[in-house]
Design a binder for these strands. Structure first.
Length: 666
DNA sequence: AATTATAAAGTCTGTTATTCA
DNA sequence: ACTGAATAACAGACTTTATAA
């Protein structure tokens, strides 16, 4: 994320105080300070109360983000609109009209907006050089204004520079060191912020706002929190030396107990993090592992969207600045525009990621019409909307009577913003298109391949299956899900554990058809006595490689579907939607048990059992699509899966160092 | 001259501690 | 006592650059 070039001394035209007036709470700069912090001049409160947070990406001059494909992003579909249901004063925050008004509205809006634990700003004067926000507040706002409720450190920097007037001219390296340091410091210090491991190569972690911490009061500082519970072990060992001394212990924990604790803890996290107790949160946030730090990391998660280098580059690209409103907007709020944004984000993401063929996404978007901006919660997604109040949209495919619903969950309720569920499939179609921006690659593979491998014991290789592809009109549904960034692993393991079934995953889109098709099918061969099929499709990967494999697997599954007798196929098209009952479990499942009576004439032998993992592995490798490590055991216990997720991963990235996959591609 | 591998330097990121208001 | 800003020190991860083979 490139910083805004700065060609001048870090002089804030608005504010160059020397000493903090009695009524002013912004800190005095240290005498030796030359890092862009408020410079000393005099004790004058700035007369010019230019808005502190200007959020250029939010300004009315923001271009319309007509992403494409007939999806018109309403102007100012951004932070303004996304928060409008919460507080109209958000706008006031952005465009204060007076000092008093500004501070009042700022305080109110921001507190209301983010549920900040910050105490109301009672002073009418600036608390800091940039306004009444603390660093933590600004960070929170930055994060919450992002579509996915997460930002990298660099993006937070960028947001500061772009959105906070005070920092506008302090983006250069000379003047930014100080406040950037403070940003980092605040991120680390406050338990409000969670660091989510970004497995993108060379990418820094995502920073998210812990929805729970500080919700009902002042957000505790991390240190205070870390002093109890499990961190007692290092309580008395502060400082560098102590830190080093604890390395051994930490290493041990990382290598063993953490996996176990993750496993056990994940089992506790079948629900939304927002519903967790503080103890659980502590437990959860104890899965931290950046360079011996255990302060804030929720490791093992990846956001495929922004972790994608191409997208990151695009984000860094100034030329794409007009898109910033979208990039920083939050579709989490329940507004039509945000839903549209979410879709747009998805489209953008997918396009940028090449995660979805252009024609596919184009068709998809071209054929989407939001016929209901915010319907009552749809029946088909009752399990979701009952808990989340998600927005439901309907999309219709021209030339087809079919329609599906887009479900845009609200933030913090069911999946992070950007989550879109496409449900209510037409009778003749079912599928899922899964967007899980925060799911790790290995998670995807874990969830997909292991499941797939356990589903099918057909004796076809992938190539065989692909060769069987037919070109007739196909129908598929797309389910857009979005795994909780925090809980993608959890959701995976939980899903697996809670449904001792195995998933079939597939994804397919017939380029010749505007409809999306796919249906994954597989016998419920494990435990359920009720014959059932359920499909879980994935389109969530940021990597071409992964998508490649996903497509192949999709095709494979699609071909498997073709093997079904027509009645079965049709039944398969009538999957009912169900969903794991939590934000964390945002991995949506289409459980078709009740809808898929397996016909007696269906020969399950070809599918019953386990698809030799070697087949998939070999085929995938032959396709040169993946750079993965495969766990050798196609079927693992949930504990194993969890452990693998937390350590080596059944399909771990090449970067994984722990554990020892039995097979690693050269 | 081009390629590759390696090391060093620099940068970024993240944590912790301290001081001050 | 607590919060928050400011600052520094430190360390790991990563990137860039220089050098050698």
């Amino acid at each position: 994320m490139a910083e805004v070039p700065h060609n001048d001394i870090d002089i804030d035209p608005d504010f160059e105080p020397q000493k903090r007036p009695r009524s002013c709470t912004w800190p005095l700069p240290r005498p030796e300070s030359n890092t862009g912090k408020p410079d000393s001049n005099d004790d004058i409160i700035p007369e010019d109360e230019e808005d502190y947070v200007t959020a250029p990406s939010i300004s009315s001059s923001t271009p319309v983000n007509n992403v494409n494909g007939g999806i018109t992003i309403p102007q100012n579909t951004n932070n303004l609109s996304e928060h409008q249901t919460i507080s109209a004063t958000k706008e006031e925050v952005l465009t204060p009209t007076s000092k008093e008004e500004t501070h009042a509205s700022q305080t109110h809006a921001f507190t209301a907006l983010n549920g900040l634990a910050s105490q109301p700003r009672k002073s009418s004067t600036r608390r800091n050089a940039w306004g009444n926000y603390s660093y933590a507040d600004l960070i929170t706002q930055a994060i919450e204004s992002s579509p996915d409720q997460r930002l990298t450190l660099a993006q937070i920097y960028d947001w500061m520079v772009r959105s906070v007037t005070y920092f506008k001219d302090k983006g250069d390296s000379n003047s930014s060191a100080g406040w950037k340091n403070s940003i980092r410091h605040n991120l680390s210090l406050h338990s409000r912020f969670m660091r989510v491991h970004n497995e993108g190569t060379g990418k820094s972690s995502w920073w998210m706002v812990n929805p729970e911490v500080g919700k009902s009061g002042k957000a505790p500082r991390r240190r205070a929190v870390s002093m109890d519970n499990s961190n007692k072990l290092i309580k008395g060992a502060r400082g560098r030396a102590a830190k080093k001394a604890s390395l051994g212990l930490q290493t041990f924990q990382d290598g063993s107990s953490e996996s176990l604790s993750l496993s056990s803890s994940l089992s506790k996290w079948t629900g939304s993090p927002t519903s967790r107790s503080s103890d659980e949160l502590d437990t959860w946030t104890d899965f931290r592992s950046r360079t011996n730090s255990n302060a804030s990391t929720v490791s093992g998660r990846l956001s495929p969207i922004l972790a994608n280098p191409e997208l990151d580059e695009s984000l860094d690209d100034d030329s794409i600045a007009p898109l910033s409103p979208m990039l920083y907007s939050s579709p989490s709020r329940l507004s039509p525009s945000t839903a549209t944004l979410g879709l747009g984000d998805m489209a953008l993401t997918m396009n940028l990621n090449d995660g979805l063929p252009d024609h596919l996404m184009g068709d998809f978007l071209d054929n989407i019409s939001l016929t209901a901006s915010q319907q009552p919660q749809g029946q088909e997604v009752e399990s979701i909307t009952n808990q989340t109040g998600s927005s439901v949209f309907t999309y219709t495919c021209p030339g087809s009577s079919s329609s599906s619903s887009l479900v845009v969950p609200s933030s913090g309720s069911f999946g992070p913003p950007g989550t879109i569920f496409l449900l209510s499939p037409p009778p003749s179609s079912v599928a899922s298109l899964r967007q899980s921006p925060m799911q790790t690659i290995q998670e995807n593979h874990q969830a997909s391949f292991s499941c797939l491998s356990s589903r099918f014991n057909n004796h076809h290789t992938l190539q065989d299956l692909m060769n069987l592809e037919t070109h007739g009109s196909q129908v598929s549904d797309v389910m857009l899900t979005h795994s909780d960034p925090m809980m993608s692993q959890a959701s995976t393991s939980v899903t697996l554990s809670q449904n001792s079934q195995r998933n079939a995953m597939l994804l397919r889109k017939d380029p010749m058809s505007s409809s999306i098709r796919d249906c994954a099918a597989g016998p419920n061969s494990q435990t359920s006595s009720v014959p059932g099929w359920w499909a879980q499709a994935g389109l969530s990967t940021p990597d071409n490689e992964v998508l490649c494999s996903s497509n192949e697997l999709s095709q494979q599954a699609n071909q498997l579907l073709q093997h079904l007798p027509s009645p079965s196929r049709n039944s398969c098209m009538q999957l009912g939607g169900s969903c794991t009952n939590s934000r964390s479990g945002s991995l949506l499942q289409l459980n078709a048990q009740d809808h898929f009576p397996i016909p007696a004439d269906l020969d399950l032998e070809g599918f019953n059992g386990i698809l030799d993992c070697d087949i998939i592995r070999n085929e995938l490798m032959d396709a040169d699509c993946l750079g993965l490590c495969f766990d050798h055991s196609p079927l693992r216990s949930d504990t194993q899966i969890t452990n693998n997720l937390s350590t080596a991963g059944g399909f771990s990235s090449s970067k994984q160092t722990s554990s020892s996959p039995s097979w690693v591609p050269s």
